[in-house]
Each structure stands twice: as structure tokens, then as C-alpha cells.
Design a protein around this nucleic acid. Structure first.
Lengths: 141, 141
DNA sequence: GATAAAACCGAGTGTATTTGTCGGGTTTAG
DNA sequence: CTAAACCCGACAAATACACTCGGTTTTATC
């Protein structure tokens, strides 16, 4: 039941972008330094986020990344789905619907997994980047 | 964000034990057959469940396992904590308290992880084996 | 136009975890 | 005494994770 570093770092990077939204594009180098992350690895996370339309990139010198929408329009769920895949604790309750367990059609355990899934989704979909930037005292740096 | 097969199989095995509670100890062989699991692997899951006091074993011929408490007293959370470890999406929000992130003391992302943790725990701690046995049509077999 | 900073891309790599298997030992009912 | 069951530790294949590396393309600035 762990979120991998992809999801963790991705959320942290997006928070940084939200915090410095007004300052124009921010380079991978700067984001990585602010969060103590590897440049190359962070690069691998921003690529899918860009393809998913959550951030936009500007190439060339003084380029970098900025949010593709306002902070209140981007949720933690959006980020985690891109970097972690389906937010379901087991395959058989992924959406769009995976098949039932092959062993028996009425699987009592399945209801548990579905409830966990719904519960997690409700949490992450209800938290926007704006919420996170506001709740934290504005971080300097 | 996945639950490993340990947790999945463990919950399924415990449901089987709850369903046949009245019939005396059930052997690993029978449980494994009912759920289509490997005998050896299931054996590895029942050992920690026994040490944690969730099941009791009876040795010798016609031995096997049975629940150590009534189905309404054993929750899915109890089972998952034994087989999956702490029910926290990232280390820094595990209980008893792990240290904060080493990078900055005020980590906005941390509040997200804590909410996910609480949400998952509330779900799994509120579902007992009794709930699962009742909700499913009584499975024959 | 040259330079350099930055995004972009794909492949590769070492480690850790997962998901089991296997073999042997111990307990115990019949 | 023996078979059935639990008990224990080693081991192995497969997968996922967490990066690293080298090179290409784009583009502001000198």
C-alpha cells in the first residue's frame, strides 16, 4: 500500500510549480534543487505530466515548466493517476472495469477493495494544488 | 498503490475461515483449494496471522486453523496490518511517528499522505469479517 | 551565426521486493 | 507408528523500482 517515489516526487514538484506560478517557467534544475531531487529522474516524471496536459513546457534558455491550468483546477488525483496508474488497490477493481476474480463470481473481498479505492479517490480528487499552497505557510526559497 | 498478494490472499483466507467458523479447524489444504491458492504460500501467510493472535492452529490429523475471535471482532485492517505492514501510503506518515521529510520541516505534500492514510484506515477498520460473510450470499463449497 | 541553456528522448542498470517453491523438522490424533 | 498437519528457513525467478547516461533538438542571448 505504498505510493512510489514517482507519485511522491511528482506531487512535490507540482506544489513547487504552484507556489511560484507567477514567476514564469521554472527549470527542472531549479525544481530539483528546491526539493532535493535528481535532475534526470525528475525529468522522467515531468514528461508524462506534460503529455497528460497538466504542465506545459517552454524550450530553450530561460525555459522550463509551468502549470497548464490554475492551481485550483489541478488535483492530487490528477497527478497520481498519471504517475502511479489507476488508483485501485487491486487490479480487479480498476476502472474501466477489469474482469472479476477468475475463481468465483461473488468475491466478498472485492467489496473491500472497491471501498478502499473509492475512499482514496475521494480524498485525492478533493485536494487541489491551491489547497496545498494555501494551507502551507508560503514556503520561501 | 497496490495491496500485495499477501494482503489479498490473507483477507480471502480469513473470509473462508469466517464462513465455516462452526465446523471446527480447517486445514491449509482445504482453504487453499477453496481459494485456488498455493498450499506453501498460504502457509506462509497464516503463520504471522497466528503469531498476531488473529487465528489459532490445531496440530495433528484433523487439525487446521480457526479464528481466534468472533468474526465481528476481527477487521480487515487487523489482517492487512499483519500482512502488509503499516497502512500508510508513504513512510513519513507511518504510526508510530516516523520523522518528517529530511528536506523541509513544513511539507505540504505530507498532509495529503496523512489524509489518504486516515481514509484507508477508517475503511478497513470499519469492515469486520462478519460484515463480509453476511453481505455475500452464503458461498457454498 | 556561435554559444550555451534548457527541454526532449530512449535505452540501460543495479537493487530491492514480490511471489512464490522446496525440503526437511516437529507435533499429535488415531 | 504413521500420516496429517503445522513449522521453519533457504532459495530462485520475475517483476518493479529508482535512478543514470548519452545524445538530440530548440531557442534566447552575445
Amino acid at each position: 500500500m505504498k505510493i512510489s517515489t514517482r507519485g511522491q516526487y511528482g506531487v512535490r514538484a507540482m506544489i513547487v510549480l504552484a507556489q511560484h506560478e507567477a514567476e514564469g517557467p521554472m527549470s527542472i534544475k531549479v525544481i530539483a534543487a528546491k526539493q532535493g531531487l535528481s535532475h534526470s529522474y525528475l525529468e522522467q516524471l515531468l514528461a508524462p505530466l506534460r503529455r497528460a496536459g497538466l504542465v506545459r513546457s517552454v524550450r530553450g534558455p530561460v525555459g522550463g515548466y509551468h502549470l497548464a491550468a490554475r492551481p485550483e483546477e489541478i488535483t492530487v488525483g490528477d497527478i497520481l493517476r498519471v504517475l502511479e496508474g489507476p488508483l485501485a488497490p487491486v487490479e480487479c477493481v480498476e476502472e474501466p472495469s477489469q474482469g472479476l476474480c477468475d475463481y468465483e463470481s461473488a468475491c466478498p473481498a472485492r467489496t473491500v477493495w472497491a471501498k478502499i479505492r473509492d475512499s482514496v479517490q475521494e480524498v485525492v480528487d478533493s485536494i487541489s494544488l491551491k489547497d496545498l499552497v494555501e494551507s502551507s505557510g508560503q514556503v520561501e526559497g
